[in-house]
Design a protein around this nucleic acid. Structure first.
Length: 582
RNA sequence: GCACCGAUGGUCUAGCGGCUAUGACUUUAGCCUUCCAAGCUAAUAACUCGGGUUCAAAUCCCGAUCGGUGCACCA
């Protein structure tokens, strides 16, 4: 079976985009190398992501270690949730928590190691609860790569299973950086690691992969977005909870989807729109892209709403490439608890509100001489009393476990009206999380075309492989080709190469083989423009520029060629404007 | 992790116990060539790894690794 995955991977290997890591030693599943062209392609994808989220949304990028300390992942739930001892039924293959199975026969099963659990299961002859079959050896199931920090192995560390936690942990610093105001966002592009039991599907499921994530901290009472109007007309294919029950997706504008409560709120809708724009810009086909809402039972319990961007691939069907979730205040609360530090924001009201409050005022002039060193503690205790505590003849407070009587003279109290200017809240987090490797593979697949090509009538059609990458992401952006291997053509070609490089364009010079072969070579790696130097160049200083997709050519001046090409790549200048038709 | 199938130059492939291991494409050097791959000459380059059977293993057996598919797991 030759499917598109195979064709794309074959091309990727052959031309230096992507291949299995450690091939020299036989390879290891779940790891892929990006070759010279692949690394460049991926970097360009990341830079477009930066353009959208870092530059245009002003969600500054940070970089934190890929190794995290244990506390972080205790808070995030990865330590507890991702390290269960599992055993499988040898007959029906069902997997079970081994510690749960031995719960009736052992005091504290969670303290036992996998080997010990295996022994217990054997000794008590515990069978599969489903079918009564025998159970296999118990193994630890933990998605995180564990390591130790420093000598002695006393401190545990983990390779992060997602980049998100680093941004939550830095919340107090980031809040200061953004001058104590909501909303603000922060991003990170980096590696994450999951020790998958059996990674399959090539580059789709990796043990080491690149995530681009944004964590946007917003006021939970206001989930509108100031720029919602810019994107509310964008039409997306939505595969909502309801749609999934009915088995159908629908096209709908983001404005309508938020209006009809299909998407929970504006902020989430806004993120969906920017995600759509990003994916299409890097080369994903819009007709092979949809947004699927998580079903209630698959959504994390804390999440308010969650949508995945899914891309259709030839072999794997719909593949999740982006997750966009409203994570509420779950993460900040978890880290606040684990670190015993408040993680919240003081939010001012538009107008101060008036609040009536019962206020106790201890008279320090009396309390001081009376209680000396204890006076401060007693005063604090008094402040907590309610009006009924103060109505009796004597006032009693408890300090350090002792009941102390305080003279009424020493305390005054009244109802006061106070102005309150704001309150402390825990922000909610909106998290768009991108799988860069999956996106990079997907755009390769969507760009890959095999077609029958002929330039002129009467010629025989021949197979042409072409990667229709957007010029902006193409790893090689221009090829400079002397028509023949002659010095008088090579010299001007070298001049053009220099000019293009100076303009920041990645350019490849190629004078090997016939011109046709060189065009094909460049088609295959997605080079959008080829510049050919011929004998007319010597006469009148013009060259031909060939368009990868249409195979059409225009004639344009050698002078200013770098600007000409640059504008086509980055400024949307059309190929027809680049020169005179030939 | 289980079951089944597979693994030969960069890529695709022939090979079914006995050779110097097919062939094509690619690549490199040169020739030819005035715009869409394969005209000429030459060169480079492979049996996944480890064990076993045999006089002899790319070929048969066992194991490992990697890849594919199904189950399980995962998002």
């Amino acid at each position: 079976m030759t499917d598109k995955y195979e064709q794309v991977i074959e091309l990727a290997k052959r031309r230096g985009f992507l291949w299995n890591s450690f091939e020299l030693y036989g390879g290891t599943a779940g790891f892929y190398d990006y070759g010279p062209l692949g690394a460049m392609l991926k970097r360009r994808v990341e830079n477009i992501w930066r353009d959208i989220f870092v530059i245009n949304e002003e969600y500054y990028e940070i970089e934190v270690p890929t190794i995290g300390i244990e506390d972080i992942f205790i808070a995030s739930g990865h330590v507890g949730g991702f390290s269960d001892p599992l055993t499988e039924c040898l007959k029906c293959k069902e997997a079970f928590r081994a510690d749960h199975l031995v719960g009736d026969v052992v005091e504290n099963p969670d303290t036992l190691s996998a080997d010990e659990l295996t022994v217990v299961i054997g000794k008590h002859n515990i069978k599969c609860p489903e079918c009564g079959g025998g159970l296999g050896k118990v193994y630890e199931f933990n998605l995180m790569f564990k390591t130790s920090i420093g000598p002695g192995g006393k401190r545990s560390g983990y390779l992060r299973p997602e980049t998100a936690q680093g941004m939550f942990v830095d919340f107090p610093r980031l809040l200061k950086f953004y001058r104590d105001r909501l909303p603000f966002g922060v991003t990170q592009i980096g590696k994450a690691y999951r020790n998958e039991i059996s990674p399959r599907q090539g580059v789709i499921r990796l043990r080491e992969f690149t995530q681009a994530e944004a964590e946007i901290f917003i006021d939970p009472r206001d989930k509108t977005h100031p720029k919602f109007g810019e994107i509310s007309d964008i039409i997306l294919v939505l595969y909502s909870q309801k749609g999934q029950e009915q088995g159908s997706s629908e096209k709908m504008s983001i404005g309508d989807a938020v209006q009809n409560k299909i998407i929970a709120h504006q902020f989430l809708g806004y993120c969906l729109a920017r995600t759509y724009q990003f994916l299409v810009r890097v080369g994903v086909s819009p007709e092979k892209l949809r947004f699927r809402q998580h079903m209630k039972d698959e959504m994390a319990h804390y999440a308010a709403d969650c949508w995945d961007a899914e891309i259709q691939s030839d072999r794997f069907g719909w593949v999740e490439v982006v997750g966009i979730a409203d994570r509420t205040d779950y993460d900040l609360k978890a880290h606040a608890k684990q670190s015993e530090t408040e993680l919240n924001v003081y939010v001012s009201y538009d107008k101060p509100i008036k609040v009536e409050r019962f206020a106790v005022k201890p008279n320090m002039g009396v309390l001081g001489p009376m209680f000396k060193g204890n006076a401060g503690k007693i005063a604090n205790a008094l402040k907590l009393l309610k009006s009924e505590d103060l109505s009796g003849e004597t006032i009693e407070v408890v300090v350090d476990g002792k009941v102390i009587q305080v003279d009424k003279e020493a305390v005054s109290f009244e109802n006061v009206t106070e102005e309150v200017h704001g309150e402390t809240i825990i922000p909610h987090v909106i998290e768009p999380s991108f799988g860069i490797d999956r996106i990079t593979y997907s755009l390769l697949e969507h760009s890959y075309f095999e077609e029958e090509a002929k330039v002129e009538e009467g010629e025989e059609e021949e197979k042409r492989i072409v990667l229709r990458l957007p010029p902006e992401v193409a790893p090689v952006q221009a090829a400079v080709l002397p028509l023949l291997t002659r010095k008088e053509l090579i010299d001007p070609a070298n001049k053009i190469v220099k000019a293009l490089r100076k303009a920041g364009i990645l350019v490849a010079f190629d004078d090997s083989g016939t011109i046709g072969r060189r065009y094909r070579r460049n088609d295959e790696i997605g080079t959008p423009y080829s510049i050919t130097v011929d004998y007319q160049t010597i006469d009148d200083g013009t060259v031909t520029i060939r368009d990868r997709d249409s195979m059409k050519q225009v004639r344009a001046g050698m002078d200013g060629i770098e600007e000409n090409i640059y504008d086509m790549i980055y400024k949307g200048k059309s190929f027809d404007e680049a020169g005179r038709k030939v």
